[in-house]
Simulated scan of single mutants.
Amino acid sequence: MAREASELAGRLAREAEAVCRHYLSNGRREGRYWLVGDVSNTAGRSLFVRLHASSRGAAGKWVDAATGEHGDLLDIIGTTCGLTSFREIAEEARRFLKLPRWQREPRVEIKAMRSRDMTKAARRLFAMAQPLPGTLGETYLANRSIDSPVSADTLRFHPRCFYRPDDTDTIETWPALIAAVTDLDGRITGVHRTWLDPGGFDARRLGKAPIDTPRRAMGDLLGHAVRFGSANDVLAAGEGIETLLSLRTVLPSLPVAAALSANHLATLLWPARLRRLYVALDADAAGINAAKALTTRALDAGIEAIALCPLLEDFNEDLRAYGKGPLREMLLSQLLPEDVVRLMGAGPA
């Protein structure tokens, strides 16, 4: 707000006489000043508005000789127009200056800058992380019955990844599984971090660190995903990394994309030549609604969309509960026959 006020006051000062003629219409110019009775635009000569900067002060500053009050042109706009909040005053000042409405343009610019900065930070973090084999990250996946080779180069491990608890300024470090979020051209746009428990596997937390939010993403996520395998005309998409890696564990030739959340699944982008999309459901309200939204978008684009339904909450639960063989058979029964033939006869994508 302070920056916005300073910027607007400066712009108004460059148009000081025009501002005075409009808002202090009962006054008149005398030399380098605009004289009027008071800040409410009463006729008189008590209030002096400096029209040009000099050694004595900046343009746009005013003093009421009768009361000792002083301020800038934003104060004059607020008083003469009967405005009380800064937002209202700023809107009126922008209207007078013929600028875009208050903060709309700066918000877009700030958001874009933050997005670029976060994307750069995400790329740096992924570059700093180490290959997955032989790390706690590989152990974490194995404890969830996921074969680490299916992760290819998309996953890495960081032994001391920064973690900031919510609503605090403290920094902690925990080992973390680092996943690259990429666009359709393979460019890293963000990363997903799963902080891990260095003390070993805990069945309740499934190996995640004992912190409030052991999973967080950063960077440009909208439409993008953590991708495993090279998708062309067929793709399976879902929310969680472990869910999609469970599909790859039993069907290693199936290209998959983890959108990381229900909201992001609904907005996922797909390859231009895609003709069939399998949507891996999470069996909760948010997951089902996101799958419906993605399915509708795909159908509207002329893409065949087919739901893959787990027996439990998600496919990683199914994998851990029933094992690889039963999960594979369950998935094959939900795929189209032509995809079964192709996936069972091909090597890893």
Rank of each mutant, 00 (worst) to 15 (best):
Y23F: 08
D169R: 11
R320H: 02
P106K: 06
A217W: 10
G190L: 12
I306G: 08
E317C: 11
A262K: 05
R29L: 02
S148C: 07
G27M: 01
P159N: 06
D64G: 11
F162N: 13
R328E: 00
L331C: 02
I77V: 14
A59R: 08
R11G: 02
F48Y: 14
M1F: 05
R104Y: 10
L83F: 05
G60K: 07
D72N: 15
A257H: 14
D318V: 03
L74Q: 07
R193Q: 15
A142D: 15
L251E: 00
E313G: 12
L24D: 01
S115E: 13
V39L: 11
W174V: 01
E329C: 00
W62T: 06
L136I: 09
I303D: 08
L177H: 09
Q334S: 00
A176C: 15
A291P: 11
S261E: 14
E138W: 01
V226G: 03
L74T: 05
V191R: 15
G10V: 07
L196H: 00
D314M: 02
I306P: 03
E242P: 04
P100I: 05
V191M: 14
G44W: 09
L332A: 06
L184K: 11
N41M: 12
F162M: 08
K111W: 11
D318T: 07
T182G: 11
I110R: 13
D282C: 01
A286H: 05
A305G: 11
G347P: 05
G229L: 07
R94S: 12
